[in-house]
Design a protein around this nucleic acid. Structure first.
Length: 476
RNA sequence: GGCGACGUACCCAAGUGGCCUAAGGGGGAGGUCUGCAAAACCUCUAUUCGCCGGUUCGAAUCCGGCCGUCGCCUCCA
């Protein structure tokens, strides 16, 4: 069994064969830190996270690089509008991004390179392109990539350069271009904009060049996987290929993976349409981060995903179903011989889970396999047909599969204040004495203090009421 | 205008020629279990896959047309 991934450039699914056997190098286009990212952005970051988690689950060593664009037109405008330095604005939203990423349990990339920390690499790349005749200067000190010098331009996006509509938003300072379709590698100095004094003159980097410079700096001139949103295919990734391959003469990226858009209200979630939701706002509304993560990763990455309050609620229920099972397995105690068919059940579920994800990260059948296992384990819990050791074994398998998904509750349960623990213990005692009136009174009292209690054959379990992060904790 | 994706139950969403009288999650309706509650389990909730033709022994799956939705075409994850 091998991992197959759908490559945008060739238009076909291909087996993953890392350049260096056993070691996969992945570059993901990360955020431009001009404001807080919305959850549509996070869909694409979490898709990359899922990829990395699965490859590691599969035993690959993975080097994952995600860039942070900390200088661009929007950041400059944003800083000017709020009267702060661009470094300050970028730092603020970089922090915000990292906080949101942690909230959503995104694996931390091995490297998070910032554009402003890679000016020498960017300049060197542009110098090479100038030397090879793929780039030219204009009067204002800008440097452009000459599309006409690169016949393969348009292959990734399947666009014919000759057919490209010339945008209406051509800036005044772009008039010096030889061809309106040429794109900026370096932007000449302008008042009020950051300027670097470099060997190619003063100015600042264009958007596309940073990804080429940073990916090749950290992963080499040729690497395995490059991810991003589908909207980056053109022009961003098309430009990356052109400038990188024109400079090195080598294949830039072996497999291009693109994540489809998050849809809400029937259209793409985008800042310009205003139909956005942000992680911090959802947290304030009491949404569980794990439910949000589940909602964003639970559909195949190449299909657009409908997001709504309803989809979020469905995700929350699905996550709670997993929580409830794990809680039940952890509390389960039964002296009896082991379940002879359990091993085959667990192996079968794992095999189905892996087969689905091997197939271009097809997560839907993987989740189906997981939930079929959940139902079967619940049946066996009800039937008391598992031994204590069986239950622990089953829980371990679920948690192992969750290394890929990252949606189950963490290991460290919350400690309740002593007075609430006392109430739980009093209730357990009342139940042991079959004093139902007292038991119900204590349940109501706990409920009034925000604690839901349930009774199982293996004792009480509790969790906090309301929205937000919830998990069942077994108690006696 | 050019290029592309998609249309499966109340919602989300797999399945891309026979194992489909169509996964899984959510929601809804009944039931079992339970002191009660919750959880869990069981049954039901698409004889049908946008519409119309065609190919085939056989199609949700292939082909053609039509209708509809969405995306990209130098801000974009």
């Amino acid at each position: 069994m091998t991992v197959r991934l759908f490559d945008t450039l060739s238009g076909e699914a291909r087996e993953l064969e890392p350049l260096e056997p056993g070691h996969v190098r992945v570059y993901s286009c990360g955020p431009t830190v001009y404001g807080p990212a919305h959850i549509g952005n996070f869909r694409s970051f979490l898709f990359a996270d899922l990829l990395v988690r699965y490859l590691r689950y599969r035993g690959y060593r993975v080097t994952w690089v995600m860039n942070i664009t900390d200088v661009d037109d929007k950041i400059i405008r944003g800083a000017a509008a709020t009267g702060i330095m661009i470094e300050e604005l970028a730092a603020r939203y970089t922090e915000q991004f990292l906080a949101d990423a942690r909230t959503l349990r995104m694996t931390m990339p091995d490297v998070l390179p910032r554009a402003t920390a890679h000016i020498p690499e960017i300049v060197a790349l542009i110098q090479t392109l100038l030397e090879h005749g793929h780039a030219y200067r204009t009067d204002d000190g800008s440097i452009f990539f000459r599309i006409a010098s690169w016949p393969a331009y348009g292959r990734l996006s399947r666009l014919d350069p000759a057919q490209l509509r010339v945008g209406e938003r051509v800036e005044a300072d772009d008039y010096g271009k030889d061809d309106v379709r040429d794109f900026a590698l370096w932007k000449g100095p302008k008042p009020g904009e950051p300027v670097w004094e470099t060997a190619i003159g003063p100015g600042r980097p264009g958007w596309h060049i940073e990804c080429s410079a940073m990916s090749m700096r950290h992963l080499g001139p040729s690497f395995d996987i490059h991810t991003g949103g589908i909207d980056l295919i053109f022009p961003h990734h098309e430009d990356e290929i052109a400038q990188s391959e024109a400079a090195t003469g080598q294949t830039f990226v072996r497999t291009w993976l693109h994540c489809a858009h998050l849809q809400t209200g029937g259209e793409k979630m985008a800042k310009r349409t205003g139909n956005i939701a942000r992680v911090a706002e959802l947290l304030e509304r009491g949404i569980s981060p794990r439910a949000l993560r589940y909602a964003l990763i639970s559909a195949h990455y190449r299909t657009s995903l409908a997001y709504s309050d309803e989809s979020l609620a469905a995700a929350a229920s699905a996550v709670q179903r997993l929580d409830a099972l794990l809680g039940a397995l952890d509390a389960y105690r039964q002296e009896r011989p082991g379940d002879a068919s359990l091993e085959a059940l667990l192996k079968g579920a794992r095999a189905a889970f892996e087969a689905a994800l091997d197939d271009d990260l097809n997560i839907s059948p993987a989740l189906a396999a997981l939930f079929e296992l959940v139902r079967e384990l619940n049946r066996r819990i009800d039937a008391r047909s598992l031994s204590t050791a069986d239950a622990a074994c089953a829980a371990a398998v679920i948690r192992d599969l969750d290394r890929v998904l990252g949606v189950t509750a963490g290991e460290a349960p919350e400690r309740l204040p002593d007075e609430l623990v006392a109430l739980l213990e009093a209730r357990a005692a009342a139940r042991a004495a079959r004093d139902w009136a007292e038991s119900d009174r204590l349940r109501a009292e706990l409920a009034a203090r925000g604690i839901v209690v349930e009774d199982t054959r293996d004792g009480q379990r509790w969790r906090r009421t309301g929205e937000g992060e919830q998990r069942w904790v077994n108690h006696g």
